[in-house]
Measured scan of single mutants.
Amino acid sequence: KITVTFNGEEKARRYYKKMQKHNLKVEIRVENNQWVVHVE
């Protein structure tokens, strides 16, 4: 499981979509004013 933190929504969403293309289970959320993407 990987957790990647971004300081911008745009970058986070781009990464999220990229990971989805690989058929990975991805989850995006905001934690402590940071955009966090969890990849299983």
Rank of each mutant, 00 (worst) to 15 (best):
K1D: 09
K1W: 15
K1I: 13
I2Y: 14
I2P: 02
I2K: 09
I2T: 09
T3S: 09
T3D: 04
V4N: 02
T5P: 04
T5R: 14
T5V: 14
F6L: 01
F6D: 01
F6H: 01
F6E: 01
G8F: 10
G8T: 15
G8K: 14
G8M: 12
E9K: 07
E9P: 07
E9Q: 06
E9A: 07
E10Y: 08
E10G: 08
E10Q: 10
K11Q: 15
K11G: 13
K11W: 10
K11L: 13
A12M: 03
A12I: 04
R13I: 10
R14Y: 08
R14M: 09
Y15W: 06
Y15V: 02
Y15P: 02
Y16N: 01
Y16V: 12
Y16S: 06
Y16R: 04
Y16E: 07
K17W: 08
K17D: 15
K17I: 13
K17P: 03
K17A: 11
K18A: 14
K18V: 10
K18I: 12
M19D: 02
M19F: 03
M19N: 04
M19V: 06
Q20Y: 05
Q20A: 09
K21A: 12
K21H: 10
H22S: 09
H22G: 08
H22L: 15
H22A: 12
N23A: 12
N23Q: 08
N23D: 07
N23F: 14
N23I: 05
L24D: 03
L24V: 12
L24A: 09
L24C: 14
K25V: 09
V26Y: 00
V26T: 05
V26L: 04
E27G: 03
E27C: 07
E27T: 14
I28A: 01
I28G: 00
I28F: 02
R29D: 06
R29L: 11
R29I: 10
R29T: 13
V30Q: 15
V30I: 13
E31H: 08
E31K: 07
E31I: 14
E31G: 04
E31Y: 05
E31V: 13
E31S: 08
E31P: 01
N32H: 08
N32E: 08
N32M: 06
N33L: 05
Q34S: 08
Q34K: 14
Q34T: 09
W35D: 01
W35H: 00
W35C: 03
W35I: 02
W35E: 00
V36N: 02
V36T: 06
V36Y: 06
V37A: 01
V37D: 00
V37M: 01
H38R: 12
H38W: 07
H38Q: 14
V39I: 12
V39N: 00
V39S: 02
E40K: 07
E40C: 10
